[in-house]
Amino acid sequence: MAPVIVYSEEESWGKQLLTAAKGLGDPVLFTFNRNVAEKLSGMYTRTYYVKTDSFDPVAISGALRDVVNKESATILLFPCTNKGRMIAGLTSGALGFEAITDAVSVVKTGEGLEVEKLTFGGNAMAKVKAGDKASVCIVSGSYKETEEAGSTGELVEIEAKAGSVEVEYSPRKMEGVDPTKADVVVGAGRGVKKKEDLEMIKELASLLGGAWSVTRPLAADYGWADSWIGISGLVISPKLYIAIGISGQPHHTMGVRGAKIIVAINNDESAPIFEEADYGVIGDLYKVVPVLIKKLKERKQQ
């Protein structure tokens, strides 16, 4: 079987993409995270671990390109994250591969890859023939994680050539739980008027044992948080997402598509978020949220 190369820097992604890769060929992992390399090498046929001290996309993509050439691979899988897209683009450009993003399924046919992908802000699904040399970025939650160790793959350590980009990194300051890993996420949008009012959002999140986050304007424009939920920010797939005072721009809803249950609280009955919600509470968030907190507290005490 021809090798399929998976790029991942995270365990969960490594396991999701492994499931996708298994249907396409012989899974080979490429990562610059030693932890991930060690944990997943038992699942992949081969694992390439690139030693690098910083995330310089050009240097990492250079190493990946060498691996693709060495393996004579024609299919590359990436997570559909900002970093994944960057590496996918760089590597595809250098190799002359097409790059398809926002894929939810990839199938190999006689005429090459057939990809189903989201487009137009997640409002439409396109079926695309991707040819036989392609990089595909896969949307979180499209494939289940592979759990069992399947093979005793070798772990190959390689060095990345030094890049020309200086990188300074400061990890995301996380107040509480990481929204990308939480079972419950509470999101605040522009309906929340003041920064202080986020306290009530945080309280609700902690009552539910979950994380809180905001929409792009609250983070990027008002600076109320370091990160946001949306296509350019965090893509989450919790069991429960509660959207509070969020109108539901495609940018945002794209980032919560993977949630099992979505609750929206908004006073504008015509807000598009209600189309995306399982339970739409029409009402003033300043009245609804305090009552919700009160009731959840009562429930906890019982």
């Binding site: 439409a124 079926k127 695309v128 189309e275 009402g283 609804v288």
Partner: peptide
């Protein structure tokens, strides 16, 4: 050219239960 076979509206199936809290 990219070979697009089809492109159609996509919606995550949601229950869309409305709860009036006005």
């Amino acid at each position: 050219k990219i070979n697009i076979e089809s492109i159609i509206k996509y919606e995550v199936p949601r229950k869309r239960v409305k709860i009036d809290a006005t």
